[in-house]
Design a protein around this nucleic acid. Sequence first.
DNA 1: TTATCTGCAAAGCCTTTGCACTTAG
DNA 2: CTAAGTGCAAAGGCTTTGCAGATAA
Lengths: 145, 145
Amino acid sequence: MTGDEIGILRSHQQGAGIRRSGPREEILRVFLKSERHLSAAALHALVKKRRPHIGAATVYRALKVFCDAGLAREVDFGDGTKRFEHQFGHEHHDHLVCLRCGAFEEIASEDIEKRQEALAKKHGYSLVAHTMILYGVCGQCRGAK
Amino acid sequence: MTGDEIGILRSHQQGAGIRRSGPREEILRVFLKSERHLSAAALHALVKKRRPHIGAATVYRALKVFCDAGLAREVDFGDGTKRFEHQFGHEHHDHLVCLRCGAFEEIASEDIEKRQEALAKKHGYSLVAHTMILYGVCGQCRGAK
DNA sequence: TTATCTGCAAAGCCTTTGCACTTAG
DNA sequence: CTAAGTGCAAAGGCTTTGCAGATAA
């Protein structure tokens, strides 16, 4: 990690009535070092390895701040648990999930994004964000079938 | 309602070890007559008007059967509550949600669908389904701002 | 000092499950 | 008769909230 993300967090906090805090920055460090798609519970487990006293509520509250700061994004594959992925230095992308084994990949299509923009405009909306999740069966699962 | 949907339900049940039931068919009738995007709780409330004894669990269980039968589809706008929309006689579509007032519209783009298919194939997946939700600000809210 | 942050535990919400009873086939 | 369906209430899983103490500015 370069340290820049902590800087982004701090500048986001500037003037937003948000103070620095050790626990929050530690959560951010662990979050950024981790795999890209973590549930709050999984992140909490990782954080507790280094700082056992940090509670789940703090992790949830920190993730909310990270999302506001643009450092994280919430992703919901529809299994009842929100996941969070860090955004720093990553292009926007969507997801392709295997219905059989649960594996998933990040996908991207500039073409689709453009059409989404146009579609929103056509309905009089200004597009702010979107989620797109494709569900299918991966090659491995089809082969194993 | 034409009655055809009940027929679809019944034929889906054929051989699936699923029996007919009055409560379930009543839930289906109310569901089909209702607005298109209902939470389970909202549907339960409507159902109880006609049959006060029907419980929430039965509604949840019925919705699962409807989804399996292709009569309904689960949609999640990310607010923590699943919604269900009936599919009978409707083209596939996605959603465009206003972040400010919560209004939403159904949208469709054959172009995007084709590209989704191609994208999945490129990654070795066979596409089964997808969700796409665009978030923005509607014209009315932008004007009112 | 004062508003924010934290940890803990409790509460909230939505959804599912266990159980005894009812009902379809 | 047998397996599926139902209603109720309880349990589950994830997330948020209340609160008193700790902490940043």
